[in-house]
Amino acid sequence: MNFTLHQLKVFTTIVENKSITKAANELNMTQPAASIQLKNFQDQFDIPLSEIIGRQFYVTDFGREIFVIAEEILNKTETIQYKTEAFRGLLSGKLKISVVSTGNYVMPYFLSGFLKKYPKVELVLDVSNKTTVIKDLEQNLVDFSLVTVSPSHLEIEELPLMDNHLVLVASKENKIISEKGTSIFKTIPLIYREEGSGTRHTMQQFFKQEKIAPKIKLELTSNEAIKQAVVANIGVSIVSLLSIKNELLQNELKIIPAKGLPLKSVWKLIYLKKKTLSPVAKAFLAYVASEKETVYKNYFSWIDNTEFN
């Protein structure tokens, strides 16, 4: 048996993507080149690792077992590289973070200085919905997750970063009139995030507390889609203030004052309590803890000057 580390990498990437074409794109290879590497790896086994049915790629049971071993080998190889760098006095390794979609307006500012300080660190950042983010954390696929609503079923540690303000917004063309009470939510059509979203969770808690049955016009699966729908004057919505900075500056959206708003939650970096953090993860946690006030001052102080009422 004479497989190479490159063949292991190609095989695991194909399995992860469930597609030779997608894996080839990720590895910056041509599709034929990836297919050849997969064939050369397969030729060393007399039991099929995968099969193509129709045009769909499937992994066999044997292939899944080889995949697990291949991942372990590749991880050990990376560890050798990182240990070598560490002995040379350089912090290196992978930092894996999953972020809920609105957190994409937050996380880059906490990563920028850290990556400049430690250029050998390799970042893997996944931006997804809350359900996927928590699943990645639960399965120990990431070092940290950035959320506003913590999972109640997991034992976690938390590092609060900054407040998250949720405001009611409408198109500049919308003639809606603010009201002192909460009755405004009984008449205006609201655009909601999908079920499982942290923003939606906070909204629902507010409506439940105020005994409000809001009029839901439609549900959209991303913050960007909601912003565009509001700009187009399809309806109004409650969104994170962080996500609409540009739209406010460009006079495309306006904040509608309403009793009880803005809603507040907290952006926090969470990780599994029993997880053994890598040197890179420990360094990032320490960096964020020491620099979060400076990051807020440099990039988010505009929030303090925003008028909500």
Rank of each mutant, 00 (worst) to 15 (best):
M1E: 13
N2L: 14
H6Y: 06
H6T: 14
L8Y: 10
L8K: 06
T12H: 04
T13V: 02
E16R: 07
A23C: 12
A24V: 08
E26L: 06
T30E: 06
P32D: 15
A33V: 01
A34C: 00
S35Q: 04
L38M: 05
D46Q: 04
S50D: 01
G54I: 14
Q56N: 10
F57Q: 03
F57Y: 13
F57K: 10
V59M: 02
D61A: 08
D61T: 02
D61V: 04
F62D: 05
G63E: 02
R64A: 07
E65G: 04
F67V: 11
V68A: 05
A70H: 00
A70P: 00
E71Y: 11
E72I: 12
K76R: 15
K76E: 13
T77C: 06
Q81E: 06
T84M: 15
E85H: 02
G89C: 14
S92A: 15
S92Y: 09
I97Y: 07
V106K: 03
V106M: 07
M107G: 04
Y109S: 02
L115T: 11
K116C: 04
K117P: 09
L125E: 05
V127H: 03
K130G: 12
T131L: 01
V133A: 06
K135F: 11
L137C: 03
V142N: 08
V142E: 04
S145M: 11
T148A: 15
S150F: 01
E155C: 01
M162W: 06
M162F: 14
M162H: 08
D163I: 05
L168S: 00
L168T: 02
K172I: 15
K172E: 14
N174M: 13
K175L: 12
K175M: 08
I176L: 13
I177E: 09
K180Y: 01
T182S: 14
I184Q: 07
T187G: 07
L190Y: 00
I191P: 13
I191K: 12
Y192V: 01
R193H: 06
E194A: 14
G196M: 04
G198V: 02
R200A: 13
H201A: 15
Q204K: 07
Q209P: 01
A213V: 14
P214R: 12
K215W: 12
E219G: 09
N223R: 07
E224I: 11
K227F: 07
Q228T: 10
A232F: 14
V236K: 06
V236I: 12
S237A: 15
L241Q: 01
L241M: 11
I244G: 05
I244W: 03
L248E: 02
L249G: 09
L249N: 14
Q250E: 10
N251A: 15
I256N: 07
P257Y: 07
I270M: 02
I270A: 08
Y271W: 15
L272T: 07
K273N: 14
K275E: 12
K275Q: 01
T276F: 00
S278F: 05
A281C: 08
A281V: 06
F284N: 03
A289P: 00
T294D: 01
Y296H: 12
I303L: 15
N305C: 00
T306H: 01
F308G: 00
F308T: 14
